[in-house]
Amino acid sequence: MKALPVNPDQSPLVVLDLLFKLKIKDVMTAEVITVKRTDSLRKVQHLMRDNRISGVPVSENGRLFGIISIDDIIRALDAGHIGDPVERHMSVNVVVLEEDMPLSFGISYFDKFKFGRFPVLNHNNQLVGILSSRDVSTTLLLELLKEYRKIEAQLPHHAPQPSGKVSQRFRVNRYDFENAGKASQAIKKTLIQRDVPPALVRRAAVAAYEMEINQVVHSTGGNLSYEIDDNKIDLLAIDDGPGIANVEEALGEGYTTANEWIKSLGFGAGMGLTNIRRVADEFTIRSTLGSGTRVHTVVWLKKP
């Protein structure tokens, strides 16, 4: 198997472009773990284990003397000289890369030499990094993702889907800040796909997000559902409890029952319901202490 499934000569143009545009220094790991010539192989073994790496350059003050690979360590364990200083067993003929070389050069090295990593030197022959195949694949993936987004943004605008009714329901869990906002994002995405004007998308997204956050922060869990047709966006949040003691009071700006922990997460300013009312064309709230709260919000797409 090839070290890297990328051919620096025959790849799509986007990839070839990246391979030349990216320099070794853009891709390498700059924080290199190194050892001194007098350090023991045992130390290298521990460094490899603790950092999950398979090669450690031997370097002092930036000058590269050699490299110890995991094979050297296995051999040392076999032969019983794991306590020896590294300079006795390191490879001294090290294949290196220069930081300003294009990435395509680095990739060809992985095929030409069967090493898992190459130390990287700057023009003063100082060790500045190390390049592993993992560095290459990670960077390439991220860069390709960026390119892909650029290409996607240039694509002709998708055909609008202005008609038909869509609806969806999401489960919202108490204190689940990790997922809070996902339902709102799905709603936002659907609206954008339907070519709803940005100002309306924003209002619906804000309403949905506040409704969702309210359930996460204040309820024991609930459901958030939306229904979109050509005329309006209908948002309905129904939770399982505990209900609001005084709805009038809760609607007041700045009124909050949130604890310090929730406030430290950026919520519980007592603006949620006020915000929903502000962005909504229709807003109703019903709550019974002990059973639950129902918030219904409508944003009109066409004035009725």
Binding site: F177, E178, A180, G181, S184, Q185, K188, A199, R202, A205, V206, Y209, E210, I213, L265, G266, F267, A269, G270, M271, G272, N275, R278
Partner: peptide, 30 residues
């Protein structure tokens, strides 16, 4: 306070916050 951010209705917006959590990004997106 993300609720305060949600009130803002401006174009080409930058959010400055000391809230280092996912919700800062989500709110920004909204």
């Amino acid at each position: 306070l993300m609720s305060d951010v949600l009130v803002v209705d401006k174009h080409n917006l930058l959010i400055v916050t000391s809230l280092a959590s996912d919700q800062a990004i989500r709110t920004g997106d909204i």
